[in-house]
């Protein structure tokens, strides 16, 4: 028997000792991209913080490091020359009330959408999605007209009623998308838990408050933060609705915007000081609840 084996020519192996640059091309590209992104995000924040401590009146001429460094000067003029404190209170009151209202609504409606089956459930969920498609800004004129026609602006307490009006609008805006988010989170909790509690003797209300609520806490926190931040960052709606009012009744965003609106009369450093102060509460909230924002609590109850 023939035993000769055709030896195939060994294919040339590619050299593995390519240069460092070539080998790590992908990594280098990724890092370059990340560094650029980091700069784009961090530089404006740093610049704002730096100019908050720089006494001067233009942002263009200022260098990155404060030339006329002063800890307090800009903040002093912020509190003395503008109605900053009242903007601050207005905004955070608005935010907190909105947050409480929308969170309560979202927590309950998410539960209902997730756990109950009724005829209009599908169409209701669908309409929540469809509402998302329409940009909220498109209804501004209608909102103004509505406020006008129910006599908010002609009333004695125009500012107060406008704020209630805005609270309702922000609450409504905060519930649509967040209800869907919340429903999704409830869905991720196995129904076995509900059923088990039911057999243990729990009422619907007890299942909701004692079993489900503790488990959706991370999502409640996330949604509360979203709802809290919504009014703080918004400028279009308050500008529209409270434009004609006194300086005292403005929100932070509108008030600060006013500081740099006028090219000739702008004070960028005071604006920066105001922005830094305004950023403190959201930063604290994020810092405090970062574990919730990241964390999941459900693992372990049901064997995966």
């Amino acid at each position: 028997m023939e035993t000769s084996i055709n030896q195939k020519p060994v294919p040339k192996t590619k050299s593995l000792n390519r240069g460092f640059l070539v080998r790590n091309m992908g990594l280098i590209a990724s890092y370059a991209f990340l560094i650029i992104m980091a700069i784009v995000i961090i530089y404006p924040i740093l610049l704002t913080i730096m100019s908050a401590f720089n006494v001067s009146n233009t942002l263009y001429s200022t260098s990155f490091f404060p030339q006329n460094f002063s800890f307090t000067e800009n903040f002093k003029s912020l509190f003395n020359d503008t109605a900053y404190l009242s903007w601050y209170t207005n905004t955070f009151l608005l935010s907190i009330v909105t947050m409480i209202l929308s969170t309560i609504i979202v927590v309950v409606s998410g539960f209902v959408y997730s756990r109950y089956r009724y005829t209009s459930r599908k169409s209701a969920l669908m309409s929540l999605l469809i509402i998302q498609i329409v940009p909220s800004g498109s209804g501004l004129i209608a909102l103004y007209a509505m406020a006008n026609s129910i006599g908010i602006y002609s009333s004695a307490n125009a500012t107060f009623y406008t704020y209630i009006y805005m609270t309702l609008i922000y609450t409504a805006l905060g519930t649509t998308m967040n209800t869907l988010l919340m429903k999704g989170y409830y869905d991720s909790i196995p129904r076995d838990l509900d059923e088990s509690a039911k057999i243990d003797g729990a009422t619907q209300l007890q299942i909701f408050t004692e079993i489900l609520l503790p488990l959706v806490k991370p999502m409640i926190v996330v949604i509360a933060i979203f709802c809290f931040l919504g009014p703080i960052g918004d400028i279009i709606m308050p500008k529209f609705l409270i434009a004609s009012m006194s300086s005292d009744s403005k929100t932070l965003a509108v008030g600060l915007m006013g500081l740099i609106n006028d090219i000739k009369d702008s004070n960028y450093n005071v604006f920066a000081a105001g922005a830094v102060l305004a950023a403190i509460p959201p930063v604290l909230v994020f810092y405090k609840f970062q574990d919730y924002i990241v964390g999941g609590l459900t693992s372990g109850g049901v064997k995966g």
């Binding site: 196995p190 088990s196 509690a197 057999i199 003797g201 729990a202 503790p214 693992s299 109850g301 049901v302």
Partner: peptide
């Protein structure tokens, strides 16, 4: 179910993840 006076063991165990073993057992 809660008025039928039954106890049930689920395939997935359905333990309440936020409660300790003591609370789980004693919940009913």
């Amino acid at each position: 179910s809660k008025d039928r006076d039954i106890a049930m063991v689920f395939q997935s165990y359905a333990l309440y993840p936020h409660m300790s073993v003591r609370e789980n057992v004693g919940y009913g």
